[in-house]
Design a protein around this nucleic acid. Sequence first.
DNA 1: CAATATTTAAACCGATCGGTATAAACTATC
DNA 2: GATAGTTTATACCGATCGGTTTAAATATTG
Lengths: 194, 194
Amino acid sequence: MPWEKSFELDTATEKAMTLFWSKGYEATSMADLTKTMGINKGSLYNAFGGKNDLFKRALVQYDRDVTKRTLDMFEKIENPKEALESLFESIIKDCTNDTDHKGCFIVNTSLETPHHNPEIQKIVQDSIAGTEAFFVRIVERGQALGVFPKGLNAKQVGSALLAYMIALRVLSRGAYTQAGLKNIRDQALQLVSI
Amino acid sequence: MPWEKSFELDTATEKAMTLFWSKGYEATSMADLTKTMGINKGSLYNAFGGKNDLFKRALVQYDRDVTKRTLDMFEKIENPKEALESLFESIIKDCTNDTDHKGCFIVNTSLETPHHNPEIQKIVQDSIAGTEAFFVRIVERGQALGVFPKGLNAKQVGSALLAYMIALRVLSRGAYTQAGLKNIRDQALQLVSI
DNA sequence: CAATATTTAAACCGATCGGTATAAACTATC
DNA sequence: GATAGTTTATACCGATCGGTTTAAATATTG
């Protein structure tokens, strides 16, 4: 056996991810990708298959390494109220820190969803369903611990928190003011305040 | 004076609008546009200037003929509670009726906003600010009429309603279930329930 | 009909699109 | 060092991109 592939698939995918995340599928060209990923066109096609396959791989990797990882992190916070506060705070902080205003790759893709193939659509749907389930669990745990009102309908409030999060991600791409974002965050947290 | 232009600029723009609305800027080609608008390439460039100018014109026209017109319509409803109910109902109804799942042209564009020129960005920002102001007025009027709780912070609740609306528009593109959309609508209306 | 202006179809432009092929340079194992 | 597989650079593919140009066909006014 003579040689192993010299570049890490996940590392290369991560660079592709950032491009697709920032610019979307259509506006990202293969030339962009090879330049940013630092690998040759031939290697890219050999390793990933094509633009669409690479996009799908990047989306799956984002869901695994960013979305799921972030949610896991916040779910480990013992106080659900603190978990929600930190989560929404981090979304707003993202907005100031990320000069590219990339927002959320999944949310961005969900807007292009009607023009993607079913596989991509399913990844987006599952990811969003996962985020909603996360919010429902947080609400239920908060109720069990007595830090959230017992009377809340956890599923309903979970949907509402998902909605607030998505709106923040959308508006953080540039169409809104920082003050407006904080208003929305405050309203989200007020949903579960006693 | 020999002749007037034979096609209505607004009618042609409306057809372009539907394309951009459904597919986004990048994914819509000049060939798509000339075919759908039913006018020749030369005429299109002569009358509109180019793809970007046409996009801007379509976006302005959408804001005028769809967004503002719709909001005006709902604002004319004397009971603010009914106005909100009808508005959110119509968003959900859009989702079932429109097989293309176009969502909202302004919201769709706001997601691509980082890659559009400042003029386009401003149209999106102003439109969203206008929608927020609409919600604030509705809330204030509802409070004055005693159908909404007096204790609400109208600006905060206005932001929250805007957020719910945006989330509905995003999720109606296909990433969510009909039941989930209704959950979100219910939560939005509960914001102002006594 | 004559004059004027618009629309159309079509060829054309250079650039770029996603994707492929090739051959040389490289790096590992044996 | 020979061998085998990977990488690179590069040229190439047909198709399409946004945009321009040209000339003929068309429609409106005087």
